[in-house]
Design a protein around this nucleic acid. Sequence first.
DNA 1: ACTGGCACTTAGCAACAAAGGG
DNA 2: CCCTTTGTTGCTAAGTGCCAGT
Length: 795
Amino acid sequence: MGTRETSGDDGIVLNFDCDSHKHKDKHKDREHRHKEHKKDKEKDREKSKHSNSEHKDSEKKHKEKEKTKHKDGSSEKHKDKHKDRDKEKRKEEKIRASGDAKIKKEKENGFSSPPLIKDEPEDDGYFAPPREDIKPLKRPRDEDDADYKPKKIKTEDTKKEKKRKLEEEEDGKLKKPKNKDKDKDKKVPEPDNKKKKLKKEEEQKWKWWEEERYPEGIKWKFLEHKGPVFAPPYEPLPENVKFYYDGKVMKLSPKAEEVATFFAKMLDHEYTTKEIFRKNFFKDWRKEMINEEKNIITNLSKCDFTQMSQYFKAQTEARKQMSKEEKLKIKEENEKLLKEYGFCIMDNHRERIANFKIEPPGLFRGRGNHPKMGMLKRRIMPEDIIINCSKDAKVPSPPPGHKWKEVRHDNKVTWLVSWTENIQGSIKYIMLNPSSRIKSSELGYSVSVFTPPSLSNPPLALGLLQGEKDWQKYETARRLKKCVDKIRNQYREDWKSKEMKVRQRAVALYFIDKLALRAGNEKEEGETADTVGCCSLRVEHINLHPELDGQEYVVEFDFLGKDSIRYYNKVPVEKRVFKNLQLFMENKQPEDDLFDRLNTGILNKHLQDLMEGLTAKVFRTYNASITLQQQLKELTAPDENIPAKILSYNRANRAVAILCNHQRAPPKTFEKSMMNLQSKIDAKKEQLADARRDLKSAKADAKVLKDAKTKKVVESKKKAVQRLEEQLMKLEVQATDREENKQIALGTSKLNYLDPRITVAWCKKWGVPIEKIYNKTQREKFAWAIDMADEDYEF
DNA sequence: ACTGGCACTTAGCAACAAAGGG
DNA sequence: CCCTTTGTTGCTAAGTGCCAGT
């Protein structure tokens, strides 16, 4: 580093030493990766040969999650494998669209067979009255939530509930206090319960809010659930479905057969042709074989799974052809399952669980060029499962003949069930559904969802566990808004720092701020696809152009980010940034870290000093939300009609999605549906022309006749024309919207980055019904915002 | 300081369900 | 009413960031 340091800086020299270690190590580690890299590059190069032009044209390519590199034309040494892979890749692109769906379908989607878990009877039992020794600590509420009335009802009441309610009434709902006292809680007598369910619901809801807010990392006081639903057991293939090895029929042992079916189900998928996939699969498959099989089956290419594959296709087909009754039956069964296992009781409130079904076994398919693709994702057994619930809750029973790995009572976490997954060794969790609030109760009478609460007061009382967190996230982003100027000035200053580390930090932060890049934690090599974020950018990921297309100091980014989605962008930057980048890149290999003295820990620590709660990802939230707000301001034309306004909204949303690089593969049927729409438009135009003609002649008649009747006709024709015009315009808007949205995914930003209050305010301001922007799930998730934001809300 | 583990958020795509057109 | 098209939900991988232990 010394060499690339600015001259004469001691600090730098010092740094250099340590750095060089780091550097070296990294370098070493990366060596072989680099090789892989090159291969990829080569592949990609070839692939993208025809149009190596930028962005637009190549977008399709990006889609496929493969790495596409432009630079580096050097490595030509790779052989056959590459070629194959290359081919595969191309194929994959295409096939992805066509083959995929089919195959997937056959996958067990769940529940043909009854869950292993045994259930317990009573519903009533669900609600375990809180023990006295457990007292809810409430967090202070600042507002009055009384307005919010849920509709659900259920279960018996508890004294606490009642009491709380009473208390509330007395106090006039405002209490903010952390815990008022639990003593108080005890006093109220309980009224009858069954009858007034409605009331009860309310109470419950209210109480729930209260109890949800605990201090100091406590997530709940009471938690009870039924445990997970396991994947249905493997059903052996019928005798007539044969597997062939080297042309000869072979009967597989059950385990080996099961794993073979996983592969067979994916046969149409391109990745079953990928070297890595096949290698990983075969290795894991062999582990499941009995010795005899191992001895015989030594070459995957000699395996013939086609009968299996056809069998599954037929099954899928059959499922599609099922009669209505059969389908209905299945549906009912699923609903029953949901009712039974899909909810838990958390602090007296019945909550929807997000993923109560354990992930079924299968072959792992990571995203992008994942080194572990094709590995066997093993079946999860009760013995792998850790159950989390409160001590006073009824512990779910494991399936007969089994036991849980562990039952714990950790109220500092939100998960109900966890297990360790075998591919990456990471922990998987069963948690609550983020959008879930009150859902219909098992009694069935509760009203569907959550009626938009009286818009009157309840300010933020509405946040539920997740909702509140969500809200907090946006509040943090708003705090950033207040000091972002200062921070920007500071990092600009830091570009001049004598310390390399500070400069790197400042430049990285600039990218994060300006381009909404992700932080870029380090990842273990060989464990995951090679993707990067800001701090983990490598020299090979950027190209510097002192001048490009008439602009000065352009940085060209090209790397794979989260989910192996390509980030490609050419950005003019300030001269100082540019010079710094040149400095950072001096004497480095392409595979070296661009910011070799920086990592997310260092960066976030610094951010924490600048503002409490500030981390790299807050910038994404902030920039996304502020962009939406600005764009809405800019794009909304007061006089436009609702569809046009919605288009404006979508455009603003799109601007954010582009900023955050939220892409999607163009829908498979995109071209077709576009054409359909166009023909609709044409038809509409014709209709309109006809109607206009009619109108004209009617007018002519009216001029002559002047009687009331003809006048009326004119009026009605006029209306018809108007109606058609509106319809046409709506269609045209739709076409524009769709076209512009071809490969942009709006959902992610809407759900995760945009302060919903901005949207709510905008809707209120322009009279756009909120349902036009948020669907039901979204409205549930953002209920707090819908409730609290008025049209003047400013992010 | 560094690392790995853990908890929780963010992500895109496929399956499924509902809506719309003939 | 059937079939296609579009919107919604489910699924689970892949990130972020904090924390404890060294």
